[in-house]
Simulated scan of single mutants.
Amino acid sequence: MNILYHHRTRGRHVEGVHIRGIVQALRELGHRVAVMSFPGADPEREPDEPSGGGTPGRVATWVTRLPGAVFELFELLYNAVTVARMAWAWRRGAPSLVYERYSLFLFATVWLARRRGVPIVLEINDSALVDRVRPLTMKGVARRIERWCLRHATGLVFISTYFRDQARAAYGDIAPSVVSPNAVDLPRFDPARFDRASLRRERGLEGRTVCGHIGAFAHWHGMDAFIDAIAHRLAEAPHLALVFVGDGKTLPAVRERVAERGLADRVLLPGRVPHDAVASWIACMDYAVLPNSNHYGSPMKLFEFMGMGVAVVAPDYAPVAEVIDDGRTGWLFPRGDDAACVERVLTLASLGDERRRVGEAARAYIASERQWRNNAEQLLTLVPGGAAA
């Protein structure tokens, strides 16, 4: 098939990883895929650049800093840009399928695809129904547009069952759908690629048991609360080192907590690293921790840890429990219970055989069910004849 992948995101960080994963998987299945990105936000060209570079990237950064209602009006106006760009692309050759990473207030792609008689599948990673980093001002308008899009698309790809259930409860008879959590590029996240002993020696982790975390330091990930909860108990596990890779709004607070409690020799905070370097940091870890998440998300880090054979201590939100089988491919604790999270982390510090057993099972699960090819094959089942294309 000739597939047009459309997105209005900036194509950075986790968004870019997901887009590249799906696009590459579709191509490996034999389909032609063209990516239409927000100007200056091509996830295939510059995956680790701050903004995609150039004037368009600076414009995108400026727009995101606008006040809520003004920003949302710009999102609505982008429908006119989408119609013009899609019409131009159509003149060069009509696609067999439009696949879109859904964005709030964006309806033009569904409208145009229906008008042209082309199937359109929406991938739902965001919604007017959930709490977001940037609160919605025009929530009513966003939900009316979202209801129309979810009812009139050919198919929908949700990242979790919880997300799909929320949409069905709010919008009723939505389009046919599948649940497709995140995935991983397994050849890239292969522990056999790395000299674990050398990496640990270079990073001052030799002789330590390492529990790690990689991702954004956002408030819902609970890194600051986790440090508060574990700080006074680290003496119970004298060989345990914590390695937390990433940056974000709560990183300064975490750094301050680590310094105040004299934990610099126990907690390593290297900051954000390029995605190409993520696997090398995971290779240093014996197990991982996700102190908190949210009700609807499918954290990319779970799949990358598990692909590397590093099992995760994680909260029992429904989307996480869809991926982690407690005691077999990871360990779950009651969400919001920092003490239970800390207790599990400290207990596992001395259980090397348990960590290895569960880590091996986690990688086997990813290999069989959660590679990007699995996601691509699943989304194509929503298109008439797509699975056999």
Rank of each mutant, 00 (worst) to 15 (best):
residue 194 F to W: 15
residue 194 F to N: 00
residue 195 D to L: 08
residue 197 A to P: 06
residue 197 A to W: 01
residue 199 L to V: 09
residue 199 L to Q: 07
residue 202 E to T: 11
residue 202 E to A: 15
residue 204 G to A: 13
residue 204 G to D: 13
residue 206 E to L: 12
residue 206 E to S: 13
residue 207 G to C: 04
residue 207 G to K: 11
residue 209 T to Y: 05
residue 209 T to G: 06
residue 211 C to I: 12
residue 212 G to D: 02
residue 212 G to F: 12
residue 213 H to Q: 06
residue 213 H to S: 14
residue 214 I to S: 12
residue 214 I to M: 07
residue 215 G to E: 01
residue 216 A to R: 15
residue 216 A to L: 15
residue 217 F to M: 10
residue 217 F to D: 00
residue 217 F to S: 06
residue 218 A to W: 14
residue 218 A to S: 15
residue 219 H to V: 12
residue 220 W to A: 03
residue 222 G to L: 05
residue 222 G to Q: 06
residue 222 G to N: 06
residue 222 G to H: 03
residue 222 G to V: 04
residue 223 M to C: 09
residue 224 D to T: 06
residue 224 D to P: 00
residue 226 F to N: 05
residue 227 I to R: 07
residue 227 I to Q: 04
residue 228 D to R: 11
residue 229 A to L: 01
residue 229 A to G: 13
residue 229 A to C: 03
residue 230 I to D: 00
residue 230 I to W: 00
residue 230 I to V: 15
residue 231 A to T: 03
residue 232 H to N: 08
residue 232 H to P: 08
residue 233 R to M: 02
residue 233 R to D: 09
residue 234 L to I: 07
residue 235 A to G: 09
residue 236 E to G: 02
residue 236 E to N: 01
residue 236 E to Q: 12
residue 237 A to I: 01
residue 238 P to E: 03
residue 239 H to W: 01
residue 239 H to D: 14
residue 239 H to A: 14
residue 240 L to S: 03
residue 241 A to Y: 05
residue 241 A to L: 07
residue 241 A to C: 12
residue 242 L to C: 11
residue 242 L to P: 01
residue 242 L to Y: 00
